[in-house]
Design a protein around this nucleic acid. Structure first.
Lengths: 132, 132
DNA sequence: CTAAGTTCTAGAGTTCACTCTAGGTCAAGG
DNA sequence: CCTTGACCTAGAGTGAACTCTAGAACTTAG
């Protein structure tokens, strides 16, 4: 009896997972086709997908990556590394460090942009105010 | 003699402006078609565009807005407000404040994402280290 | 058992922000 | 002049990330 076997896992239909993850049913199927899941999704005898809590957690991570502008291709690459199992941590680290560097640069740039926008707002406020 | 008339302004061909702004020649023509310039671009008798320093400065601003993910439609709306002249500062402020709020949220989210990424990296580094 | 609501696949369609093509016209150096 | 490189317009094409469609199969409440 392995540790995994002791974990009672809820299951979800694709519609339920869509509601939880915020992705559309279509998007979930498309994600699977793009190789964005680190495990094969089991099916009912009739062919319908059965997702588990692991998928819920994985999608939370994917959402983070996507919302921070990681391309789907990179998410797919990462998923495939996880799928391949232990031993490729160096590759995973490289991928994540690359994204972290992108995020650092992006954050800096957005902060600079916010400054510019703020200055514009101040400028227009003054323009309005000076028109007694 | 107005103040403007005293400003000696350099002119630029579309190719020069492309080099300066980092946009392609195609993109600049497309920007004009999208209404992203707050003034009509003058032409030579032969029909070629003549840009001035004002266009250079305007594109620097547009680049900031675009790089901070403002949709072209919003940049067009802003350009049209500037084109319309003084008196619509409230609209300009509303547009910029909306974008500023978006930026604030985006910056927060990217910082949170960076944390998640950093944790992943740390986790993988440990996994590598523990495999003596 | 049946009807309604989900889910299935394969593939076409959409949106955004360009990018590229075709078939010319213009401008500047020699 | 003439050539060559830059520029013109209109419109088609691209890549990313979905979104939607059609027609069929599955599932479940009654």
């Amino acid at each position: 009896m392995t540790a995994e076997a002791t974990i009672a896992e809820r299951t979800y239909t694709i519609g339920e997972l869509a509601a939880i993850s915020g992705l559309s049913v279509h998007a979930l199927r498309w994600y699977e086709a793009q190789g964005l899941f680190p495990r094969d999704i089991p099916r009912t005898p009739g062919g319908q997908r059965i997702f588990g809590d692991e998928a819920v957690r994985w999608l939370a991570l994917l959402n983070r990556l996507r919302d921070s502008a990681m391309p789907v291709a990179d998410m797919a690459r990462y998923s495939q590394l996880v799928r391949a199992g232990e031993g490729n941590e160096a590759d995973r680290i490289a991928l994540m460090e690359s994204h972290a560097r992108y995020l650092d640069a992006q954050i800096e740039e957005l902060i600079a942009s916010r400054e510019v926008i703020r200055d514009k707002i101040i400028f227009y406020r003054r323009a309005v105010a000076s028109r007694t």
